[in-house]
């Protein structure tokens, strides 16, 4: 299968196989009107199989979201057909409005104006806690 190279845009590489749709959804790529290619189960020497997403426009990618989903993802910035930047990700210290608190007793379930804020508590285990009620969420990549 052949997917054309992009001229100016972003390539999200080294997405764990099968997780590309999570990235697609969390980044709201369905709302873009530029070409977006999602390749699943691409052969990879390092990973065996991986997913890749190519976005044919230079959009602002929320690196916090990507870091939470999978800090192993590589973000390649392409300008005029050239790779100009390769960004490595890590788990962000703070997530704002990326995930929601699942605790039915949390104040965020009734106060719509509140941001959903999670703070990183354990980097090794990818554990985040709701800033308000301390309910735990784990990074999807580390589950």
């Amino acid at each position: 299968m052949k997917v054309d190279s992009i001229h100016t845009g972003i390539v999200l590489d080294h997405i764990r196989a099968g997780r590309g749709m999570d990235v697609y959804r969390y980044l709201h790529l369905d709302e873009l009107d530029c070409p977006v290619a999602y390749m699943r189960n691409v052969r990879s020497e390092a990973m065996g199989r991986k997913d890749i997403i190519k976005i044919d426009a230079n959009i602002n990618v929320d690196l916090d979201v990507l870091g939470y989903l999978d800090p192993g993802i590589t973000v390649n910035i392409i300008v005029d057909g050239q790779l100009v930047e390769k960004k490595k990700l890590s788990l962000p210290e703070k997530l704002t409005n990326v995930i929601t608190c699942k605790n039915p007793r949390c104040i965020t379930t009734v106060e719509g104006a509140l941001d959903q804020v999670f703070l990183l508590k354990d980097r090794a285990r990818g554990v985040y806690r709701c800033m308000f009620c301390d309910a735990e969420r784990k990074s999807k990549a580390l589950r």
Partner: peptide
């Protein structure tokens, strides 16, 4: 005092 957790923080 509030029945919802995190209300004082909010």
């Amino acid at each position: 005092r509030h029945p919802k957790e995190g209300a004082p923080m909010a």
